[in-house]
Amino acid sequence: MLKISETDEIVFAPELITKFNEIVSRYPEGKQKSALLPILHLVQAEYGWVSTAAMDKVAEYLHLKPIEVYEVATFYTMFFLKPLGKYVLEVCRTGPCHIVGAEKIMKHIEQKLGVREGEVTADGLFSWRGVECLAACGMAPVLQIGPEYTYYENLTEAKVDELIDSLRLTTAEKPQIN
């Protein structure tokens, strides 16, 4: 299911470069470094995670030193620095979600998927992890799935089952070509 492995060389598609160029145009001349976070999001959406080779290419594109990209990618928790499942269920674990059952939801996901936090299911489809407050406290418990980061709110165990089953079905209907 993985689109790229640790050692794969990265060549950005022309359409991706077009998007990068549009982003860079939002900032004053010489301030292209500002494009780093939006570009890393695009890279992760494209490849499923952010490999070192991909970061090096981003550095090259933005005329930065590779370390300037590494230090940013490691600081922000949204960037996956190792391959995860196609769908990463990110469950809010903070205060307001916590008091209305986030832990129960995470335990349920763990059992349902049969993998621990941060691991990948054998079919490469799913990973899950607890994340900090997603700003949906009134609709708690809540989880989201990238790269669209759709919110799934007012979760129950039944809703989680339904969600995971439907994602499995979607993938079965439209097989991914690696």
């Binding site: 301030k31 470094k33 500002s34 600081f75 922000y76 960037f79």
Partner: peptide, 19 residues
């Protein structure tokens, strides 16, 4: 990119500068 600290205005500015 998923960092609470970026709600602090100078951290937000740093982040907007790509840091």
């Amino acid at each position: 990119g998923g960092a609470y600290i970026c709600g602090e205005e100078t951290a937000l500015i740093e982040s907007l500068e790509g840091k």
